[in-house]
Amino acid sequence: MYVQCGVTPIDFVAVLLVISVFAGVLGSLVGLGGGIVVVPVLTLVFHIDIRLAIGASIVSVIATSSGAAATYVKERMTNLRAGMFLEIATTTGAVSGAYLTTVVPTRALFVLFGVVLSYSAFAVYHKRHATAVLTTSSDRIANYFDLHGSYYDEAEHQEITYKVTGTKVGLAMMYVAGMVSALLGIGSGALKVPAMDLAMHLPMKVSTATSNFMIGVTAAASAGFYFARGQIDPIIAAPVAIGVLGGAMFGARLLGRITNTAVRIIFVGVLVVVAIEMLQRGVL
């Protein structure tokens, strides 16, 4: 019953291309890399080794990030300053994670991560209707580096000016996000978005756009390593890269037009799926 029996190389490339377009659209909207779609499809449908699937996932993260960010930055949806500032924590977290890979029990980490994501899904769902943005901030770090911003909301037809707070909590969560992505090879966007939406009070769309902007850098830090180890197979990675880039560019034009509440609900749905996936990997 397995599909791979009659699947020729051209079928494989064509099917993967179409699925990757979908992954790119979804990934660019919620600020995750699209690996959540690509990895299960490759392993469960095409029976490809998990190591090659993770290599393809890294490619899809970078493709989603760069493809969507080109548009988000131009349209000022990304908070460039906050993104760059928080990358201090994600990159150092990623390096620490790379050192810890041999000592940390991965299964326990999958379970812990699954629990954390379940909680974030609940918390984001709880504040799904929140629209108020901060108009003042007494956060000294945010004020010093001037991390506040504004964007034009196409759904509300107005310029939204917002203040940023909670940078210390944000930095701590970003450090963990970087570490987790280095340890598990996935999931950094799933922690970045709640860090910005819940802890730092960035508007939801700005959070997903800024997460999108950042995940490429976190993934690039380990991509060279995966490439050199031969985990990035060109016949898998080419359709993934092309499809995801196309999808991400389309998704990036979509984000401005939908409401913050809709973005939160899509994000929660995706987060629940990722959380289940994590728990499953930790327990089974």
Partner: peptide, 23 residues
């Protein structure tokens, strides 16, 4: 052969041991 709609499989191209440049 890769373009034919039957008779060949994608599998040898997408296995861990398949040959592709990585240095």
């Amino acid at each position: 052969g890769y373009l034919r709609l039957s008779g060949s499989s994608y599998h040898p191209l997408t296995q861990l041991g398949s040959h592709f440049p990585h240095t």
